[in-house]
Design a protein around this nucleic acid. Structure first.
Lengths: 343, 343
DNA sequence: GTAATTACCGTAAACGTTTACGTTGACCAA
DNA sequence: TTGGTCAACGTAAACGTTTACGGTAATTAC
């Protein structure tokens, strides 16, 4: 593998100066046409490509670059977050380098390192695990690169973030089911390592408590939602477990719309009618939730808006010293057919 | 706006050398603890951030960067393509800068320019319009940056690409409807500016011709699918138009799953039973297509595999002179409930 | 006492491109 | 001849960080 050719290589081979070569390649004046022709020919032969690091350094102009790290890319909510970030970024001539952690803390760390190596001027990320805080975030803070956390939270994080009120969302969803007459409300949740799952579960439990209902351990199922292509299936399986209980639930609050769709799939196959026999509420207002039948009641999450705000926070954080920007969006319940109450 | 502080600023203010400042900020040895403390304090006060251009230039280390430009980001097919590209890229320590053209040729050109300015070592893109070839692509080829076109085509493009056989897909879908007894098959297509729409439409027409059926102009509706959030609605409207005809169709081949879902929505609202009164086939095998009822027959497109191959082609093209890599995937029909034949 | 070690710090040259400025020789006018 | 103009090219200093190498003073060893 030969080294990359630079101006000096061309200059040396032709016995002329770097400046002349530069002039030829950049259409500057003060150069003989014949010389120029020779230079262009050799440059082409050697496959010369300017080193943009040197160029930008000298010209003191660098396109700002922001790293965006999300757990899953081909997922409606996260890809919409990315869209929101991009909308703002493009309007400010900022480029986005995107990475997918696939819920893998090792991969997350590696990508963040690459972001830093590449010289991003900021990072917007949804952490995979609650446990990766020190390894992933601290080193970045130490290099004074602005971070904005989105959607998910670390316990000890005190920096910029754009979150949603997952607790409140879980609370509202559960209370809505209670209000519509459902008594035995189950909850299909994620494993403990993801903050959003824990928060929504807390909201669910708190809503039950507020109604004087003692949460039933059997009604809470923790399931692995790491693999996006298998989540619906996971929801199906969890529902199957719930309906094997002596006293099955009459409603399910699902931590995710995809889980809820799995619940619906199970109900359809087993002739359980929704919402009469089983009320369902999902989470995120995915595109699908509005077109499945019965149309799925869900908690609205505006990924686009969140992404835009996250980028705004990055911008602000970049031009301020130590100031911290934080926002937790309230979540609205979208009531559709799947939770309209028992017959 | 004050200038960005550099090592020299700190060195001057403390009356020491740049090297010492450097040692303090990078945890090198050969430095007095007290000096280090002073430097860190001042650096923090001045908000020092290393210039990563200079760093990378000096270290002669630059992480390879590939620009990926897609029409829409929060769309199942394209986000899955992106996922495929990333899977390969991450495994090879390559970073991805992603852009969204939103079907806007001006935006497309601008983002491509930014990619080049940033110094990408390659570009993978799905073109927005058939018309933007010269403005967008030629300048990149001229700079000898490898390009891989994905999913969509330019008429005069002769470089690397990863496509699907949209013509064949349209043909198979239409023929399948014919085989299942549908006679009056309509087609909801995209506007002419997008190559995939034109190809699928050709396949539809060819299949009719092969069956000895003269395509009916009234059954072909061209609709704008640029705005992803409105596509389902567009499908709904197009269907409404079809059913206002004296002789409405008994089947619809939709250029997109989202369009097909709009068709289904219309059918449900108007008590048109699927597949008995109306057969439907979509395109792309979106996640939703398998969970909507009736489950949607569709043409399978493996975005993940396409993305992976596109990245492989970029890699190959980078290390070869002039060799061209091209692949057109055959498409399989996935037969589900929405096209099972007339009663 | 001298020699060797150590802790701390500075000098200067890189990385590749860009640019202000200077130089050379040719040509022409007076 | 002198002076001036112009085309064509070169010199050298930037951009900010990194690093090989050298230097000084103070400490330790013998």
């Amino acid at each position: 593998m030969s080294k990359r050719t630079k101006l000096k290589d061309i200059a040396d081979q032709l016995g002329i100066s770097i400046t002349t070569v530069y002039r030829a390649l950049n259409n500057k004046s003060d150069i003989n046409l014949e010389t120029k022709r020779e230079i262009l020919e050799l440059a082409n032969k050697l496959g010369y490509r300017p080193n943009l690091l040197a160029t930008s350094l000298r010209k003191n102009k660098m396109i700002p670059l922001v790293g965006v790290l999300l757990p899953i890319i081909n997922h409606y909510f996260f890809s919409t977050v990315l869209k929101g970030i991009m909308a703002k970024a493009h309007s400010q001539n900022t480029l986005i380098i995107a990475g997918e952690s696939l819920q893998n803390p090792v991969k997350e760390k590696k990508i963040l390192d690459q972001f830093m190596d590449q010289g991003v001027s900021g990072i917007i990320m949804a952490p995979t695990r609650n446990s990766n805080f020190e390894k992933s975030i601290i080193p970045i803070l130490h290099k004074r690169t602005p971070i904005v956390i989105i959607d998910r939270m670390y316990d000890h994080y005190r920096g910029n973030y754009v979150l949603t009120d997952d607790f409140g969302g879980g609370f509202k969803a559960t209370q809505h089911l209670l209000d519509n007459g459902y008594k035995r409300i189950a909850h299909i949740s994620s494993l403990d390592n993801i903050s959003i799952g824990a928060e929504r579960r807390k909201g669910y439990i708190e809503a039950l408590n507020a109604a004087g209902i003692i949460p039933n351990e059997e009604y809470i199922i923790l399931t692995d939602i790491d693999n996006p292509d298998a989540v619906i299936e996971k929801g199906y399986e969890a529902t199957a477990r719930l309906f094997k209980l002596k006293n099955p639930p009459d409603a399910v609050f699902a931590v995710t719309d995809d889980i809820a769709i799995g619940v619906i799939e199970y109900a359809k196959e087993n002739n359980i009618s929704i919402p009469e026999d089983l009320g369902i509420v999902g989470f995120s207002n995915s595109k699908m939730s509005n077109y499945i039948r019965p149309r799925l009641s869900t908690v609205e999450q505006n990924g686009f808006e969140m992404g835009q705000l996250a980028f705004d926070y990055f911008t602000k954080a970049s031009s301020s010293y130590g100031e911290v920007f934080q926002k937790t969006f309230d979540l609205n319940l979208i009531i559709r057919e799947s939770s309209l109450g028992k017959k």
